[in-house]
Computed example of a mutant assay.
Amino acid sequence: MDFIRHLLGLDKVTYMGYSYGTWLGAWYGSLFSDNIERMALDSATDSTQESIQTLYNAAHEGRDRQFRLRMMNWISRNDEVFGLGTDPETIWKRYFAATSTPEKSLATQWSWNAVNGPAAFSNPIGYRAAGSLVAGIIAEGEAPSKPVVPAESAARVVDQTELTDEQRAAAHYGTEEVDRPVIDFLLGGDRPAQTIVAAGKPLPLERSTYESWTPLDENAEHATEAPLFTDPTIPAETGVVREPRN
């Protein structure tokens, strides 16, 4: 990275890093701090670990929490669309029961990959496709018993997965209360004087936001460990601006 800076003839660089990019940014900043003008890290990894493999190991747990605590709740709130009921735990159990054999599991893997379903875990624009994907996988898995051919099973699931043009056009899910101060800072403005906690935008098909864990306390931490399941109908608390922590 510093060689690229040198080739560009820059004395200093401004760096914006997401996810894995935060690992690169943290290490670059620690090694070449004099060459950094401004830096912002979003969805930061733990750069104090010896290897980024720690991140990859934790990613499975993080996606399981998103799938179980957020996506299942969202699907249950939109039963009129997906027809899977209003109990997130029941939907979750049906999903794993429907993917319990090696053949069904392989078909499910191919289905998710074919429609880029995992993208929903980083951008809510993919929720409609992921929701219909989950419904299709359950329907396919609960169909009358017959020999499962993974490629044919995956094709049937993919054929019924939907994503409208309107949802594609609504792909920007940024939060102006957070995005704007970061953009202004990277463009030369002052660093925000306060820690900003802002409400997220509603997920597709919804006009409100909901809790999918428990509210954050004054230290921006959860008061409890991750629950197995939560009530999908509890509205999220509105974000507030707090003084920065030392």
Score class of each variant (00 low, 15 high):
Leu55Asp: 07
Phe67Thr: 02
Ala107Gln: 04
Val157Glu: 09
Thr161Gly: 03
Glu176Asp: 12
Ser105Ile: 00
Leu133Gly: 12
Ser145Leu: 09
Leu133Lys: 05
Phe96Pro: 03
Glu50Ile: 07
Ala170Thr: 00
Ala130Gln: 10
Val157Gln: 10
Val148Cys: 07
Gln109Ala: 14
Thr99Trp: 00
Glu142Gly: 04
Ser153Arg: 10
Thr54Ile: 09
Ile138Asn: 07
Val115Tyr: 11
Glu176Ser: 13
Glu50Leu: 13
Ala119Cys: 01
Ile125Leu: 10
Ser105Asp: 08
Leu163Tyr: 10
Thr101Lys: 03
Glu50Val: 10
Thr99Phe: 00
Gly141Trp: 02
Asp165Thr: 06
Gln49Arg: 15
Phe121Asp: 09
Asn57Phe: 09
Leu41Ile: 06
Arg63Asn: 12
Asp46Ser: 11
Met71Leu: 15
Pro147Val: 12
Glu50Gly: 14
Ala40Val: 15
Val149Leu: 08
Ala139Met: 02
Val81Trp: 04
Thr99Gln: 02
Ala151Gly: 03
Gln160His: 07
Leu55Met: 10
Glu103Arg: 14
Ala97Lys: 14
Pro150Gly: 07
Val157Ser: 11
Val149Trp: 03
Phe96Ile: 02
Glu152Ser: 13
Ala170Pro: 00
Ser111Lys: 04
Gly85Trp: 05
Leu106Ser: 08
Ala139Leu: 02
Thr161Pro: 01
Ser100Tyr: 05
Asp79Pro: 01
Tyr56Asn: 06
Thr161Ala: 14
Ala119Pro: 00
Arg68Tyr: 05
His172Val: 13
Ala155Asp: 14
Ala129Trp: 02
Asn113Thr: 11
Ile75Trp: 04
Asp46Trp: 05
Thr101Arg: 08
Asn116Gly: 13
Asn57Tyr: 12
Gly83Asn: 09
Ser51Leu: 11
Phe82Val: 02
Pro88Thr: 11
Lys93Gly: 00
Lys93Cys: 01
Gln49Ala: 15
Asn57Met: 13
Glu80Ser: 14
Tyr173Glu: 09
Gln160Val: 14
Ser111Met: 05
